[in-house]
Amino acid sequence: MLNNLYKWVLSLANRPTAPAWLAFIAFVESSIFLVPADALLLPMLLARPERSYRYALIATVASVAGGIAGWALGYFAYDAIAKPILGFYGKLAEFEHLKASVNGWWIMLMMTTSGIAHLPPIKLVTILSGVVHLSLPIFIALATVTRGARFFLLAYLLRRFGERVGLFIERRLNQIAVLVLVMAIFVFLVSRCTIR
């Protein structure tokens, strides 16, 4: 099912309505959807490199707006709406464990790693941020910086290096994500030790 969904998202890149689909998928990815916006953004960037930064901006704005929707789900409607969504994806137990074991610092770290590398999935972190009542302005700032960094970096790399880097990113996305996660955790731990 996920493979078919991924192929459907890829097929949207060739349509004239691709920017609207990109906005929609980036929005729902940040709150309830499984397929990352990158699945549509990458082929769009390769097809129209002159529009790279425009597409990155669309993805960033829509992703942050979707993140706010996820935050609101967690903050205002966790039991009524968010729990059934998490249960549908089989993520409820993982989410409940996270909810019981996080504090503000861990939420900010997860926002960073999730925004940049999808670890953990962005929808979990946006809902969790609302559940633990992370300040909305801090949430918006973190989401804007991390999601913007991801999408604009992809836009820059594909505009600068073209299809070769696109294929490399698509093949090695998991390894790149793990490397970014390790670096983010290292920076986080160093900053915590320095603050003390």
Rank of each mutant, 00 (worst) to 15 (best):
A20D: 00
A141R: 04
V132H: 04
H97Q: 14
W106T: 00
G90S: 10
I32W: 04
S101M: 08
E170A: 14
G162N: 02
L153R: 01
N14R: 14
V35P: 02
I138W: 13
F186W: 09
E163V: 08
I169G: 05
P120V: 05
F95Q: 06
S31Y: 03
S129P: 05
W21C: 03
L73T: 02
V102G: 08
S129Y: 06
V131Q: 10
F152I: 05
I32H: 05
L154E: 12
L98D: 05
P43Q: 07
F139T: 04
A77L: 09
A62H: 08
A39T: 15
I68S: 04
I138S: 09
M111G: 03
L158G: 03
N174F: 14
R192K: 09
L86W: 10
L73G: 05
S52P: 03
R147V: 08
A18R: 08
A23C: 06
M183Y: 09
T113E: 05
L92W: 06
Y55V: 01
I176Y: 09
I58N: 02
Q175H: 13
A23G: 15
Y89V: 06
V35A: 05
P121A: 14
A77M: 12
D38I: 06
A117D: 07
T17S: 11
P137G: 13
A59N: 11
V190G: 00
L181Q: 04
S129H: 04
F151T: 01
L134Q: 02
P121M: 07
N103E: 00
V102T: 11
C193M: 10
R164V: 00
R48D: 12
A93V: 06
F168L: 13
A37T: 06
I68E: 05
L46V: 07
N103D: 12
P49K: 01
R48M: 09
Y78P: 01
A82M: 01
K123N: 07
L86N: 10
